[in-house]
Amino acid sequence: FKLLHLRTMVFSFTLSMYHFVIAFLFELRKRKCLYLLDKMQVDQEEGGQQKCHAEHTPEEEIDHTGAKTKSAVSDKQDRLNQTLKKGKVKSIDLPIQSSLCRQLGQDLLNSYIENEGKMIMQDKLEKERNDAKNAVEEYVYDFRDRLGTVYEKFITPEDMNKLSVILEDTENWLYEDGEDQPKQVYVDKLQELKKYGQPIQMKYMEHEERPKALNDLGKKIQLVMKVIEAYRNKDERYDHLDPAEMEKVEKYISDAMSWLNSKMNAQNKLSLTQDPVVKVSEIVAKSKELDNFCNPIIYKPKPKVEVPEDKAKANSEHNGPMDGQSGNETKSDSTKDSSQHTKSSGEMEVD
């Protein structure tokens, strides 16, 4: 049984090899025939072109000197023959297949969008935390620098030493335990520092801005006092003002002057380290109050005087004869001058 099976396998293999060889030889013969046919066709075409070229195109021409030269048509034919001998060019269309990229599912896409939003929010919170930390550090450095310069006159030595220790402790805390703290911790730390620093800063700002505010208020009081003095002297610019209202203005200016002098005297008695008696905001408010109370009264415009029609007509009639009289007088004066001139001329002639 095994021997029979082996023989069957050998026979099948031999038969398949025989069919393969027959098919291979047939294909080879077919390709050879096609090649020979193509070659014969090319040879026939080349022979026909050469024959046509030999019959109709002379290879040589005689120039004007009598010498034989090769024509331009012959050169073109040679280039054409060389091109034909190179062989045929066959174009084959290449197949192109397109495949779409796989898209993400809607659930997965929403998950990615949500994660992106969380990361953006986390970056924003981290930036705010760093900004709060930097604000504390900046306040420590800036205020400590000002303590030794512009703020030195507005704080006592004891308070300066105490505040310097607080600033130094805050700086050390920033680089140790406060290196990575939530935003609110830095905000609270900054507010705690400002409780010590803002009173000193307020004293400095009040000292710098108070002279200008007092000067502006004093100028306005002097201006109103000049108007009151002119009103008392019967100045025609202010003779239309109401006496009762001017009495109110005079009383208000007197009170404002007393208030200003008392505040200035009290402030001059204090040292720079003490809180001011009067703030700049109070002085500015007093100045605005003075403008609102006095200006509508002292700058009240004069009422327009309307002349009655009868009086205006009478004035026009009265001015007419005066003009005529003036003309007659001018005429008589000119006549008199002329006669005097004639008389003087006669006297000159007599002489």
Score class of each variant (00 low, 15 high):
4 L>Y: 08
6 L>S: 11
7 R>K: 14
15 L>E: 08
21 V>P: 01
23 A>E: 01
24 F>N: 02
32 K>R: 11
38 D>P: 01
44 Q>T: 14
45 E>A: 12
46 E>Q: 11
50 Q>H: 09
58 P>M: 00
64 H>D: 15
69 T>C: 13
76 K>V: 15
77 Q>M: 14
83 T>Y: 12
84 L>R: 15
85 K>I: 13
87 G>T: 11
90 K>L: 09
92 I>C: 03
93 D>C: 02
104 L>F: 08
105 G>A: 08
106 Q>F: 11
112 Y>N: 04
113 I>E: 11
115 N>H: 08
118 K>S: 10
122 Q>L: 11
132 A>K: 06
133 K>E: 12
142 D>F: 13
153 K>M: 08
155 I>C: 08
160 M>D: 05
174 L>Y: 01
175 Y>M: 05
188 D>A: 09
189 K>E: 04
199 P>L: 06
203 K>T: 02
205 M>E: 14
206 E>P: 02
214 L>V: 05
218 G>V: 03
220 K>N: 07
221 I>D: 08
228 I>H: 02
229 E>Q: 03
233 N>G: 11
233 N>W: 05
235 D>A: 10
236 E>Q: 04
238 Y>E: 03
241 L>P: 05
249 V>F: 07
253 I>A: 15
254 S>L: 14
261 N>W: 12
261 N>T: 10
267 Q>H: 07
268 N>W: 10
272 L>P: 00
272 L>Y: 04
277 V>N: 12
278 V>Q: 13
280 V>A: 00
281 S>M: 00
281 S>W: 01
285 A>R: 08
285 A>D: 14
286 K>Q: 15
289 E>H: 09
292 N>W: 03
293 F>M: 04
294 C>N: 00
297 I>G: 02
298 I>G: 03
299 Y>V: 00
301 P>S: 11
302 K>C: 06
305 V>F: 07
308 P>V: 07
311 K>N: 03
330 T>I: 04
333 D>N: 12
335 T>D: 11
335 T>V: 09
341 H>E: 11
349 E>C: 00
350 V>D: 00
